[in-house]
Design a protein around this nucleic acid. Structure first.
Lengths: 200, 200
DNA sequence: AACACTACTGACAAAAATGTCAATAAAGAG
DNA sequence: CTCTTTATTGACATTTTTGTCAGTAGTGTT
């Protein structure tokens, strides 16, 4: 008497594919709706699988969160690592590098990620961020043939401002009635002028 | 047969006092542990009352969240409204005003609040922010006897950067191995230099 | 002192969220 | 084709969180 209707045949993926599928769905949820939507049922539904499938691959919803953080941070680090901002280069080269940095940090997903990390104080998870930043800092700072102090300051300044602009520039600008990207534009101008000032 | 032990006599407050007590406890929870700790049981325990008491005064835990947002935003707006940053004033005056602004935005609670708002996309709640910013923008921008465009830009720039520094300056600086407050210092220097540049 | 009002509470109900498990079915190996 | 492996799943159990309700107890009034 046990008849199983088979309208929707199962999709059987490799473990890696399945994990990737679930994380992709979770990332979209995070970007579009925030971390409070990263519930087990929501993630499973968005991924098109059963709740138990998510748990089968990750063990717990918390592990999904950690994996998602790691993946998004990894992607962000990769995009940042590809940027070159020589402090002693001509102005145009620095401008391009800076814009790329701001681009990388201005996508909505990054803002959500940053806010999420800021609110997730479990120290275990902060380790992920620490490692990522150290990777960027070491490779970037040490490689440039520039006074380390200056380079470090410039990087700290650029990244901090880029994150701030990426997170709140659009919202604040819109609220004040400024055209899209105005905060970014102002900040970039100021950073470049400041670089020029320090280079003299 | 119904004997009530009376070791801890009830505290009976006015409705206003009770709401204030609960919101104060909730604020502390938010600042110290983040919004995921703003659960009914946690808030009630922190406030030293029963769960039902919280619901009696606010109706739902969600209403507590909204009220807390409104209160914290209100406090922040008040502190910002008290700041004067005349764009045409001497350098020292602008420096003091800017530092005050950064102070106001650099407390841990503000960072948590900003991140919380960023992640809470329910449009109903965003209204609170919109109104607050409009209040600041109107009074501040219109009052100063300065070209509106310039004043608006300076405010947008200052606030955006101050929020960014307040949120991520400490963490990023620590991760890179910079002394506490380095990002703030660099940003302030740059902002002042930029004001000077534009004033000429 | 008796009464009215209502802030307050414990016990319980309801809902939401996470996790467990045995059974099912897709894919490759023999 | 048969067997083994295991990704997948529905049904169920557990835990967590929110909300309800009737009764209790302060506080002011008459």
């Amino acid at each position: 008497m046990s008849i199983k209707s088979n309208d929707t045949p199962r999709i059987r993926r490799t473990p890696e594919e399945s994990r990737a599928n679930i994380l992709a769905a979770a990332e979209q949820l995070l970007v579009e709706q925030g971390p409070q939507s990263l519930r087990l049922a929501d993630v499973a539904k968005a991924a098109g699988v059963a709740n138990a499938t998510v748990l089968h691959h990750f063990g717990s919803i918390s592990a999904v969160h950690t994996a998602l953080m790691e993946q998004m941070i990894g992607q962000l680090v990769d995009s940042i690592m590809a940027i070159e901002i020589p402090v002693d280069a001509p102005v145009e080269a620095r401008a391009v590098g800076l814009k790329t940095l701001f681009d990388a940090l201005e996508t909505p997903g990054v803002a959500r990620l940053a806010a999420w990390l800021e609110l997730t104080d479990e120290t275990s998870r902060l380790t992920v961020v620490r490692e990522a930043v150290q990777e960027v800092a070491q490779k970037k700072i040490s490689s440039a043939g520039v006074p380390e102090d200056l380079a470090e300051d410039m990087i700290l300044l650029s990244v901090t401002l880029a994150v701030g602009v990426g997170l709140f520039g659009p919202s604040l600008g819109k609220l004040i009635g400024k055209p899209e990207g105005r905060a970014r534009e102002l900040t970039l101008q100021m950073l470049l002028a400041n670089f020029q000032r320090l280079a003299e």
